Amino acid sequence: MPESDFIKPFSSEDGHYAGNVYLLTSGKTFSAAASFAWTFAECNIGTIIGEEAGGMSVSYGDKLWYHLPVSDLECGISFKRFWHLNADEDDIHGAMPDVTVSASVALDKALSLIKRR
């Protein structure tokens, strides 16, 4: 693929945000939100505040598509499971917070961190 096809990151002149970013999580953070929290942590995007995300650091992808002849429906089934880099089947966690506090006070904690910076 030629380099001209790559998407270039925004510069500060283009409006790139270079400030601190905070993500609030709780034990009720599941599904796409849990995957987002895991990606947020893995890519060191910012600081996670709250509780361990409820969803495990595992996701599915690479679908096989089938046409069901009787109903004439199309369906997809995932056949690959992607695990967190350091996880195994006996030690699976949701995204872990950088600052562990009860979800009920996570916003207050984030605001206090913002005010200190």
Score class of each variant (00 low, 15 high):
residue 35 S to A: 12
residue 18 A to H: 13
residue 71 S to A: 14
residue 22 Y to Q: 10
residue 54 G to K: 03
residue 66 Y to I: 09
residue 68 L to V: 12
residue 92 I to G: 04
residue 51 E to W: 00
residue 68 L to Y: 05
residue 14 D to S: 14
residue 3 E to F: 04
residue 77 I to P: 00
residue 68 L to K: 08
residue 106 A to H: 01
residue 56 M to G: 05
residue 31 S to F: 05
residue 57 S to R: 08
residue 43 C to T: 11
residue 3 E to H: 07
residue 38 W to G: 03
residue 80 K to I: 13
residue 35 S to T: 10
residue 47 T to D: 01
residue 64 L to A: 09
residue 46 G to F: 03
residue 98 D to P: 00
residue 11 S to G: 15
residue 73 L to R: 14
residue 5 D to K: 14
residue 43 C to W: 09
residue 38 W to N: 08
residue 36 F to W: 03
residue 61 G to F: 12
residue 79 F to E: 15
residue 85 L to H: 09
residue 27 G to A: 10
residue 29 T to G: 11
residue 64 L to P: 00
residue 107 L to Q: 04
residue 42 E to H: 04
residue 28 K to Q: 14
residue 82 F to L: 10
residue 34 A to I: 07
residue 62 D to I: 08
residue 24 L to D: 02
residue 59 S to D: 07
residue 96 M to Y: 00
residue 19 G to L: 09
residue 23 L to W: 01
residue 81 R to L: 12
residue 66 Y to H: 10
residue 9 P to K: 11
residue 55 G to F: 01
residue 23 L to V: 08
residue 88 D to T: 03
residue 71 S to Y: 05
residue 84 H to I: 02
residue 45 I to L: 14
residue 104 S to W: 00
residue 7 I to A: 03
residue 40 F to P: 01
residue 84 H to Q: 09
residue 102 S to L: 04
residue 103 A to T: 04
residue 65 W to K: 13
residue 14 D to P: 04
residue 79 F to G: 09
residue 79 F to K: 14
residue 44 N to H: 06
residue 34 A to Q: 06
residue 5 D to Y: 05
residue 28 K to P: 00
residue 28 K to S: 11
residue 34 A to T: 08
residue 18 A to C: 11
residue 23 L to E: 07
residue 16 H to W: 07
residue 94 G to I: 07
residue 62 D to L: 11
residue 14 D to H: 06
residue 87 A to G: 06
residue 28 K to N: 14
residue 82 F to A: 13
residue 91 D to M: 02
residue 68 L to E: 14
residue 69 P to A: 12
residue 104 S to I: 04
residue 78 S to P: 14
residue 22 Y to L: 04
residue 76 G to F: 04
residue 5 D to V: 07
residue 19 G to K: 09
residue 80 K to W: 08
residue 59 S to C: 15
residue 36 F to R: 07
residue 88 D to S: 06
residue 85 L to K: 13
residue 100 T to L: 04
residue 31 S to I: 04
residue 68 L to I: 15
residue 44 N to A: 07
residue 105 V to S: 02
residue 28 K to T: 11
residue 12 S to P: 12
residue 56 M to V: 08
residue 100 T to V: 13
residue 45 I to Q: 06
residue 54 G to T: 02
residue 104 S to K: 09
residue 88 D to Q: 01
residue 86 N to R: 10
residue 99 V to Y: 01
residue 98 D to M: 01
residue 100 T to S: 12
residue 50 G to C: 10
residue 73 L to V: 12
residue 9 P to H: 04
residue 16 H to I: 10
residue 106 A to V: 02
residue 78 S to G: 12
residue 53 A to T: 06
residue 15 G to P: 04
residue 51 E to L: 01
residue 32 A to H: 05
residue 73 L to G: 08
residue 84 H to Y: 11
residue 62 D to S: 12
residue 85 L to N: 09
residue 95 A to R: 01
residue 38 W to A: 06
residue 10 F to G: 13
residue 56 M to P: 05
residue 70 V to P: 00
residue 79 F to T: 15
residue 60 Y to P: 01
residue 41 A to S: 06
residue 60 Y to T: 12
residue 28 K to E: 15
residue 35 S to Y: 03
residue 13 E to V: 13
residue 47 T to C: 05
residue 91 D to Q: 08
residue 9 P to E: 11
residue 3 E to M: 09
